[in-house]
Design a protein around this nucleic acid. Structure first.
Lengths: 132, 132
DNA sequence: CTAGCTGCAAACTATTTGCGAATTT
DNA sequence: AAATTCGCAAATAGTTTGCAGCTAG
């Protein structure tokens, strides 16, 4: 994840990259800043914003929007996947589904388009256990 | 669409409601304001924002986010559907797909959730004509 | 008449940016 | 040493809101 392409490897970037790769969730900038600051207080929000934008442009990070007004981030190297958001807790579960993707491609084609990107978000509520 | 529920029917609201019901696309606030102003210059952006929020709370309008930082709006009475966004022009095409919905429900269940809401957005680019 | 609405401009929130100082290569 | 990058604070963009006047019911 730290293989750079023409960028200077500063302490701040190293730090932010580390926080990102260790994150299992999909943190927003504020959260990234909070975590980074906890490890080394010499980072500013501006740098987090700049780094995150840089990584996005380099294709290392993907910007997501799950509502709430803040952008959330997802490392691009974790493969193609969608999200299931628990409406009660806000927890995000990742999943992949090839059948779904194929279907979307078919729909796009039917409408005369080539699929560029697919965004599937399922908002759900934990189902009550069937027994037990 | 104009059946109100405990709201005063002011000229501005009537105007905005009309612009909304006549819109075939998914306009953002700025666009709504532009169209409303063209019909009657005595509207302010603030009122458009307030009205749109009011209608959303009443369940008459649905707020969407297709990227680009601005909220876009969709009358709720047009039935369940998804969106295909033309990445080059920003045009939004609506479509419904029962097969897709069923599949999403299955996926949710597999993960232990009941489906509450489904958001499917296909970003595509106009496919070059195969012939002619 | 009165509760509720409107316009204006100031306030907010998330994000970007200009600039001089600090760092990386 | 040269080019980047950083932190700060001011600037943006979209949206919300306080207040005094206006209007529907």
């Amino acid at each position: 994840m730290c293989i750079e392409r023409g960028l200077k490897m500063t302490g701040q970037r190293r730090l932010i990259a580390r926080v990102l790769s260790e994150a299992e969730d999909h943190p927003d900038v504020e959260e990234l800043y909070r975590r980074a600051s906890a490890l080394d207080a010499r980072v500013s929000v501006a740098t987090v914003y700049r780094t995150v934008r840089l990584l996005e442009e380099k294709g290392i990070l993907e910007r997501r929007d799950f509502g709430g007004g803040r952008a959330r981030f997802d490392p691009a190297d974790r493969g193609h996947h969608h999200h299931l958001i628990d409406v009660d807790t806000g927890t995000v579960i990742e999943f992949a589904d090839a059948e779904h993707d194929a279907l979307a491609r078919t729909i796009a084609r039917r409408l005369g388009f080539d699929l560029v990107q697919l965004r599937l978000e399922i908002f759900g509520r934990k189902a009550p256990a069937k027994r037990g």
